[in-house]
Nucleic acid binder design. Structure first.
Lengths: 209, 209
DNA sequence: AGATATTAAACAAACGTTTAATTAACTTTT
DNA sequence: AAAAGTTAATTAAACGTTTGTTTAATATCT
């Protein structure tokens, strides 16, 4: 059963695409690294671009969106929803740093137009959900009159920023360059705490005097 | 005087590199777009990679770092320094969106190792300066005990986020897709205001009761 | 006339992809 | 259970393009 081989190729692919980009990764390089014949990639996936798309879809299935569920949960207050979303995002992104890096590249570069638009609309959808939550909080007078889409940009932008480069992240956190912050539970905790504190301070109206 | 031509090539280069990436941009494509002969690029710059580096250096000279100056300015309080840095960053980045996008790509992709390290150390330096300011504010009991490097990540990450994709930014701001948010003074104002509000709320200890 | 700029053409190398032949893994038949 | 048949997997080699770069000839300018 060669389904293992297919998955193995996709695993190597996401690593190479993440560090070298799509155009910067060659089939030969990929085949060598995955220890398979060059022809196998086209045999299994049809083309380099199809491999890319298949890999993205495969990885995305592990990262299904739970924002809509959180938004609809009426047992949670608005700030609790945001806390949940922060934990969710951080957890998901930290668990798939290579995949996340590939997505960011695809946002930044618009070579494969269809895919580019796909990533954009995914982001747009998430934005709308979070913006809706924040606006509800404002209407309920629980939140200050902030700029909802930019608040979301700050959450997601902070995570993107630390995930952009492992080296940079280690420098930021005063760790050795061989450290992997993305699978360090302490770093995860720290990032979540920072985001929550930031959002709480920015949004919540202090009612206690 | 063919210095115009050199600059023209660099101008076209930063546009193409920004939208298609370094590997995704070919010399022929570039020559056609700049309306020059293919050989002229190597004649003027030596190689594609040298053109890339020369262009980056050329553009970077317009974006000299003023953070150190701000940090050293003893006439400003810590929060005023941060406000200044926010305005500075936003202004600089919004004025050179293509260049900024290229830098982000170079952070994300580590193909040209030397350049990659250069961009990283530039970022690291800025981080240290801003972290120093925040730590000083904490020592002076003007700021809350926040996580300085992550606070800086949030500032820079927010800007990066909105600059990642023009389309996405327009969606965020409910503008037409043909709009250019980066040269819209209202957008600039809105972004600065959001960042200041966020940082103020997060850092400043309310002393008035 | 001499340096600089510009050109079209050619270069080798690398690219993604395909081919045609061979091996491995199952299915069916005996 | 062995043999024959059939499909799937794997390979090395070649394909046609495209890549960045160079060359050698021509044009432009001082």
């Amino acid at each position: 059963m060669s389904n293992d081989k297919r998955e193995h190729i996709m695993e190597v692919a996401v690593e190479l695409f993440a560090t070298n980009g799509f155009e910067g990764t060659s089939i030969r390089q990929l085949a060598q690294r995955a220890d398979v014949n060059i022809a196998m990639i086209n045999y299994y996936f049809g083309s380099k671009e199809k491999l890319f798309e298949t890999m993205l879809e495969h990885k995305a299935s592990y990262m299904r969106n739970r924002i809509e569920v959180v938004e609809a949960d009426s047992s949670l207050t608005e700030i609790e929803k945001l806390d949940q979303i922060i934990e969710d995002y951080v957890g998901r992104f930290l668990s798939q740093p290579e995949f996340h890096r590939v997505l960011q590249q695809e946002l930044l570069v618009s070579q494969r137009e269809a895919l580019h638009q796909n990533v954009i609309s995914l982001f747009a959808k998430n934005t709308q959900n979070v913006v809706a939550i924040i606006e509800k909080g404002i209407r309920k007078k629980q939140f200050r009159k902030v700029d909802p889409p930019l608040v979301f940009s700050s959450i997601i932008g902070t995570i993107n920023q630390v995930m952009q480069s492992r080296t940079l992240c280690n420098m930021l956190m005063n760790k050795d360059s061989d450290n992997n912050p993305y699978q360090d539970p302490q770093f995860k905790k720290r990032l979540i705490q920072h985001l929550k504190q930031m959002i709480h301070a920015q949004l919540l109206i202090e009612k206690d005097i």
